[in-house]
Simulated scan of single mutants.
Amino acid sequence: MHFHGQILKMTTQNGKPIQYFLNLSNDLINMNQLIGRNLKIKHVGYQCVNCGSEEKIYRMGFCKKCFFESPYASDTIIRPELSTAHLGIAERDLEIEQSIQLQPHVVYLAYTGDVKVGVTRESQVPTRWIDQGATFALPIAKTENRYEAGMIEVALKEHLADKTNWRKMLEDDFEDDLDLVDFREKIKNYFPENFQNFYRDEHEMIRLDYPYEKPEKINSFTLDKNPEFEGILKGIKGQYLAFDGGNFINVRGHEGYVIDLEV
Rank of each mutant, 00 (worst) to 15 (best):
T143C: 06
E144K: 14
E144L: 15
N145S: 08
R146G: 11
R146H: 10
Y147L: 06
Y147C: 00
A149Y: 08
M151Q: 08
E153C: 03
E153A: 08
A155T: 02
L156V: 09
L156T: 00
L156R: 04
K157W: 07
K157C: 12
K157E: 10
H159W: 07
L160D: 07
A161S: 15
D162P: 05
T164G: 09
W166G: 01
R167T: 13
M169P: 12
M169Q: 10
E171S: 15
D173M: 05
E175R: 08
E175D: 15
D176I: 11
D177R: 09
D179V: 07
D179R: 12
L180F: 04
L180N: 01
D182A: 10
F183S: 06
F183H: 06
E185W: 01
E185R: 08
E185T: 02
I187P: 01
I187D: 06
N189V: 13
Y190I: 01
F191R: 06
F191D: 04
P192K: 06
N194W: 08
N194C: 04
F195G: 00
R200M: 01
R200W: 02
E202V: 01
E204M: 04
E204D: 14
R207K: 11
L208H: 11
Y210D: 03
Y210E: 02
P211L: 10
P211G: 09
Y212A: 04
E213F: 12
K214V: 15
P215Y: 03
K217F: 04
